[in-house]
Design a protein around this nucleic acid. Sequence first.
DNA 1: ACGTGCGTGTTACTAGCGGTAACCCTAGTT
DNA 2: AACTAGGGTTACCGCTAGTAACACGCACGT
Lengths: 214, 214
Amino acid sequence: MDTTQRTDQQRSADRRRRELLEAADRVVLRDGPQASMNAIAAEAGITKPILYRHFGDKGGLYAALAKRHTDALLDSLRAALDAPADRRERVEATLDTYLAAIEARPQVYRFLMHPAEGGQVGDQGFDVGKHSAPLLRRMGEELATVIEERLDLGPGSQQLARVWGHGIVGMMHAAGDWWLGERPCSRAELVRSLADLLWGRLAAAGDRMGGPGF
Amino acid sequence: MDTTQRTDQQRSADRRRRELLEAADRVVLRDGPQASMNAIAAEAGITKPILYRHFGDKGGLYAALAKRHTDALLDSLRAALDAPADRRERVEATLDTYLAAIEARPQVYRFLMHPAEGGQVGDQGFDVGKHSAPLLRRMGEELATVIEERLDLGPGSQQLARVWGHGIVGMMHAAGDWWLGERPCSRAELVRSLADLLWGRLAAAGDRMGGPGF
DNA sequence: ACGTGCGTGTTACTAGCGGTAACCCTAGTT
DNA sequence: AACTAGGGTTACCGCTAGTAACACGCACGT
C-alpha cells in the first residue's frame, strides 16, 4: 500500500503550507494588506507559481490566512462566553476579549477588516471584501446560536437571536474599530459603555430639558 | 475682472464633473465595484486622463461618488430622527429608513460597503477600504452628537454618546448587511427586533432552564 | 491680423499586478 | 539504465492605475 507514502506526502505538503502561511503572515504584517504575491513568494524563498499551486488564487491564500486568525479569535471568544460568571460579567468579558485582541495585534485586525489601507501607489491589495464579511458573519452566527440556546426569548426566539447575534457583533465591531483609531478612552470604559447600551440604558435615559428628546 | 470668466469656467467644470460622476455611477451600478477607470471614461464618452484631471486618482473619484450617496442617505436619516414622535418611534423610523435605503438600492449599498464582490477574473476593484469606514464613521459621529444633545446621560455623557453612536450604527450596519443577504424576515420585524435589543430586552430576558444562562 | 496662453482632449506609454503555460531537474521506482 | 512524479523556475499574457507629451480651439492683449 501507499498509505504511508500518501501520508508522508501529505505531511510534507501540510508543512510546506504552514511555512507559506507563516511567510505570508510576516509579509502582510510588514507591508500591510497590499502585500503582493511576489513579495510573499520572495519572503517564503520561492516563486509565485508554488503559491498558486497551494492556494489556487490570491483569495484562497487570503482565506487560509484569515481562517487561522479567525479561528483563534473565535476560540478565545467562546472561552470568555463560557466562563463561570453571571450574564453581564460574561458579556463584558467577551467584549473585552475581542477588544483586547484587536488592540494587541492591530495589524492583523486591519488586515482582516480593512483591506487597502496605507497603500502607497499601486492600490491593488487584498480583496478582503469577499472575506471580511465571513468573519463578522461567523461571529454573528455563533453568537446567535449561543443566545438562542441559553436565553428564553419566547416565540420567534430563533429569528430574534439571529438578529441580535449579528447586531451585537456589529456593534462590537464598529465601536472597536472607531476606538482603535481614536483611542478616546480606556478599554474598560468602552466595555462598560457598550454593556450599558446592551443593558437598556438608552431606553432608560431621560430627555434633556426642552424639545422632545431623542 | 475675470470673475465672470472664472465663474463660467467653474460652472462648466462643475457640470462636467457632475456628468462624469453620473457616468461613473452608471458603470459602477452596471459592472459592480470592479468597474475600471477605462470603462468609466468610455461610458462618459471621454478618455482616462480627463478623469484623473478631475478626481486626482481612483480614490478621489470614489470619494466623490460615495459622498453623493452618503450625503443623501444621511439627509433622510436626519429627517427620520427629527420627526415628531416619541423616542422609540423615531429610533424605529431611523432604522427603517436605513434598511429601506439599502433594500431599495442594494447595488449602491454593495458598492459603498463591499468593494470587490462578483469580480470575475481580475480582482482589482475599487478600494473601498479607505472610504467605507468614513461612511460608518460619519453616521456614528452624527448619531453621537444627536444622542449627546438630546439625552441626559449624566457624567461622562459625551464619551458615552460617542461609544453608543458608533455602536448603534455598527449594529444597524451589520444586521442590515446580514439581513440583505439572507432576507430571513421582513424589514418591519428586523426593525422591531433591533429596537427591542436597544430597549434592553437582552438584559431582561430570562435564562433557559438549567445551566447558568447566557 | 497675429501670436499667446489656457483649457480640453487625445495617443502612447510605464510599472506593476494576478495568473499561467511551458519547461527543468532531481529522487525514487522498476 | 530508463522512466515517471513532484517541486521549482523562467518567461510570458492581459489587465490595471496612472502619466507624460503632444494637438486642437478659442478667447485674449497689442
